[in-house]
Structures are given as C-alpha cells and as structure tokens.
Design a protein around this nucleic acid. Sequence first.
DNA 1: ACGATGATGAAC
DNA 2: TTCATCATCGTA
Length: 183
Amino acid sequence: MLDKSFFVRDTREVARDLLGKYLYREIDGKYYRGIISETEAYHGPDDLACHCSKGKTPRTEIMFAEGGNIYVYLIYGMYEMLNFTTMPQDFPAAVLIRGVIFPQVRKGGKFVDLQDRTDGPGKLTRAFYVDRRLNGKPVGKTTGLWVEESNITPREIIRTPRIGVDYAKEWKDKPWRYLIKKL
DNA sequence: ACGATGATGAAC
DNA sequence: TTCATCATCGTA
C-alpha cells in the first residue's frame, strides 16, 4: 500500500506516478479496485485552476494539510470528484483522479470484472461509492480507500492541458493532465 | 449543443 | 440573502 511519503511530493510527480497503480475501495465488506489511467495535478496557491487559489476556505482547507488525505467535492450539483492531497503541510495541492480502467469487484475471494464505466471523474466515483463523506480522511485501509502497486507499468505516458479550466489564464495551458497512452 | 442540479464563495 | 459559476455527463 502506498503511504504518506508517496503523496508528500511534487503534485505533478504524484499525478504521473499514480498511473498504473490500483485504486482500492472497501465498503461494507465489499472490495472494489481498478487501474488508475488518468490524473490531473492542481498545484499551489498561484495555480488559478486549483480551488486552493481562493485561499483557505471550508472546502479547500484539506488541501493545506499534509499530503495523503482525501479531497472530495461536488461539481455541477451531481458529480463527486475524487482527489488525493499532496505536498507538505501548508502547501495546498491535490491530484484529481479522472479515470480508472479494468474495474473489478471481489466475489468469493476473487476479483471479477465490473461492467461499470469508470472512464471519467464522475463515473468512477459512482462506481466506487466515493462521496463527500470521505472528504478529509487519510488515504488508507482504515478509511476504506487506498492505493497499491500493481503489476502494470505504463509503456507510454502523455501529458496534456487540464480539462475544463479555460478560466485559469496562463495556468490553463500547463500540461498537468497525465494519461496512459500505451499499457 | 444543451440541460440537469446544488454547493461554493463573493458581493451586497 | 442573492447570484454567477462550476476540475461533468447523458442525451440529442
């Protein structure tokens, strides 16, 4: 299981390194997992695309804590967005999990494929039962949401500008979206 | 292309 | 208290 030291690093490295890792979810004794395939880095108080550029508010407070915590917020009144906070205490930053592939559920001790679509940030939170009740909790088994190594190492990773942040002036073009191009 | 749907933060 | 905005998705 990846621990705090994985998350207390530069947000863009964490975003890149999360690709190919297993996202695990345990709720009421049921286990789900999938391979993280797309992420975005939101890094620092000056990044206008980051909610944290508004300063410390009730919503953004968790991003100012030490890396390795869960930041979940509601967007467009409908979709829960899952983020993992990064960087040391007082440097606000987080990684948005935008896509997961090969979603599975454990049945009778074995993981079997789910047919749910998990190829978007709002879809994967629905499939994995992630909502704001997880906000502010540490990433870990106790919480029921954690990340583990997998046997997959992406062959090719590409970067693009982040999605849906056209308002962010010079920050909108930063290539801080990470995707697996070749498995 | 557009509407659903409600939290958020800033202005008043 | 009001108001514009929003790190999306499904349907058209």
